[in-house]
Nucleic acid binder design. Structure first.
Lengths: 236, 236
DNA sequence: AATAATAGTGTCGGCATAACACTAATGCAA
DNA sequence: TTGCATTAGTGTTATGCCGACACTATTATT
């Protein structure tokens, strides 16, 4: 474990990819900061910073998140991957532990951090040229998110407290970039047993109102039991 | 990106979990080194070391592997997770990027590294008390390996060049720790389309000899096509 | 009353999976 | 040579999941 003398230790940063959805579920957006200094001055980058002495890597990611946005509640946070190729930062050896965070759509406004000249949302599907290897990191994050959407409930937290099944479907279609069948989607998503109807409904236009659902945090019920329950409720 | 003065940078190590199978497919084994120095002197630990200036994280993991074992061919190497809780190393802030490696069973002998008093194989299911948070890291590695065995071909490389389907099944049962149905296993595994019969067979005892298979690296064929091909071959 | 727009529902066919039992091949012993 | 012990190797059936597919329900406006 003894470190050789004469070789400077690598720097370690934690970068946090902050994702949310645009109003009207039209876009998946990522928060980027404009670099004020060389290298890559003027380019956009994933917000990040050094790990403080007393904090864990995840705490560092949360702190970044709080520094960049006035985020009230965080839907999801997960370590993505650690990038450490030599040469990814021209200044020297920098190893970056990347996290990705999902925050609900409800009016998150970015505020410029201390050392970032500017901060704003970009579409994940229309990105500017990024600093360092951050383009590759975003690709990796999107791939991970898509994979997890297929078999977990990660995506649910991107919406607010209450949402309609149509909204949830739009979200999935937006991120997966493909159309989903309405009936199959509803069947599959309800079979997960993590969604419960609030009883209330919402009208979005001059149409039939849509029932509202809530994400059920208790994981007490199996999918099968949940479906049974759902069917029973429906037939009542 | 400017680093505050006065806070020493964290140290970064790469730890490599080296897994193999015991002779006779009786055990999943991990290579551990005995620590000669405090802290945790005398305890066993995952081999690891610092990242050298010019090398990537993965190259560091490969170097570790070469230093600890006379490994000829490496079946699989993947970044596992980065552990960086403060306090995981009593000497100060150490962030560890963990990799796990799978090496074929064929007579890999550990040789004691420079700063390790001793090195030997342990059963993953009967581990000694480990240094640092290494017990937790091994748990995490086993969980990842199990998950990936379910839907990828990771495990194939743990066997030698040629192997029987019974051996492969034993390997799966060993790692997943549950019995599998022979017919279902063979159907599923062949449907992956990555296994081809070598035409040769091997006798293990006083029994019917078993056909040998080889891992087909070309990923040219779809599972369905592979199954068709298999069936056609069989019926000939 | 008709219209426009979205919400909400059921069936059927194909495919993957799990459960399940017998025959085939080999060397050895009687 | 026959039987035995042991492992290799094979097919069918029932069930559940998933994809494809079209019509009715509800609302406000005209």
């Amino acid at each position: 474990m003894a470190r050789k003398l004469g070789t400077p230790p690598p720097a370690v940063t934690v970068d946090t990819i902050i994702l949310t959805v645009g109003a009207g579920l039209t876009d998946l957006r990522v928060l980027l900061v404009r670099r004020g200094r060389a290298p890559f001055a003027g380019r956009w980058a994933i917000p990040g910073g050094f790990v403080e002495p007393g904090e864990s890597l995840e705490q560092a990611a949360r702190r970044e998140l709080a520094e960049e946005t006035a985020v009230t509640d965080l839907a999801y946070l997960e370590q993505l991957y650690t990038f450490g190729d030599p040469g990814r930062d021209p200044r020297g050896r920098v190893i970056t532990v990347a996290y990705y965070a999902l925050v609900p759509a409800a009016g998150i406004e970015p505020h410029a951090g201390d050392d970032a000249a500017d901060a704003r949302w970009f579409s994940m599907f229309d990105l500017p040229r990024l600093a360092f290897d951050h383009g590759r990191i975003l690709d990796y994050a999107l791939a991970r998110l898509r994979a997890k959407m297929e078999y977990t409930t990660v995506g649910f937290g991107l919406l607010g407290e209450e949402f309609t099944l149509s909204e949830l479907q739009s979200l999935y279609e937006l991120i997966l970039r493909r159309r989903l069948d309405k009936r199959n989607f509803r069947r599959r998503i309800l079979a997960m047993g993590r969604l419960e109807p609030t009883g209330r409904s919402r009208m979005n236009g001059v149409h039939r109102p849509a029932g509202l659902y809530r994400f059920a945090r208790e994981k007490g019920s199996t999918p099968k039991a949940a479906r049974k329950r759902h069917e029973a409720t429906r037939r009542k």
